[in-house]
Write a protein that binds this DNA or RNA. Structure first.
Lengths: 110, 110
DNA sequence: GTATTATTCAACCATAAGGTTGAATGTCGA
DNA sequence: TCGACATTCAACCTTATGGTTGAATAATAC
């Protein structure tokens, strides 16, 4: 099995799955509930949930025929931890080349 | 083309590419330099670089026959921004089910 | 000028992703 | 008991991924 970070990043690379994660911050939901806003089959959403589950981002609680999905944010913390190592590079000023490109764009763009 | 976040998350889902990003924090490097630590063909690394480039995580500066790759951390900031929306869920105490599971594991595991 | 170096392009392969449809499983409600 | 509901499983399709090898391109070194 791929490493935890691999699974987390890959799971979050799909917009449908990011919306599901977002949705789950408002509380548990069944697969059917999660599927409701999407223009795709229930089966497709069920697969997305499984990907999130494998990445540890979702926990499933079976109650009779209904499965209640809960957010598990721990993997998100790992993603954030990895990402934050690059924080000091975010605010670096644009280097000469990028400035040049930005300026020519300004000049030709209006 | 997929959305920026899609590309960034997907690019970071591969451990080789995460190591390349990490390597580039120590300064620019050529494709050959980047490939050196990996047990894979130069071509494979060249493809990884292209994925990072498409995600905006790497900028390429051609100087003669050599291509110098630079880190561009902006997409990482977007990833961090998205992820941090879930910060308040990270430290949530384990819920009843997880506690139960953790405890039965402890009890049966030694 | 010719060989060497740096890199990409192109074709190929195996496997995974994201979707579909249709059938199976299991639970609830009357 | 029987039908409806919630969900998954299985098979399939198309496209993407991550790797390979071999050839092409372009710049440098001698």
């Amino acid at each position: 099995m791929p490493a935890a970070l691999d699974l987390a990043f890959a799971a979050l690379a799909d917009p449908t799955r990011r919306r599901i994660v977002s949705r789950l911050t408002r509380g548990e939901a069944r697969v059917t509930d999660l599927a409701q806003p999407f223009h795709m089959s229930l089966n497709a959403v069920s697969k997305h949930v499984k990907v999130l589950e494998r990445a540890g981002l979702v926990r499933r609680e079976r109650l009779g025929r209904e499965h209640y999905l809960h957010l598990r944010a721990a993997p998100l913390r790992e993603v954030a931890r990895w990402t934050s190592r690059y924080e000091r590079f975010w605010n670096q000023r644009l280097d000469a080349l990028e400035q040049f490109l930005a300026e020519s764009k300004e000049a030709s763009d209006d």
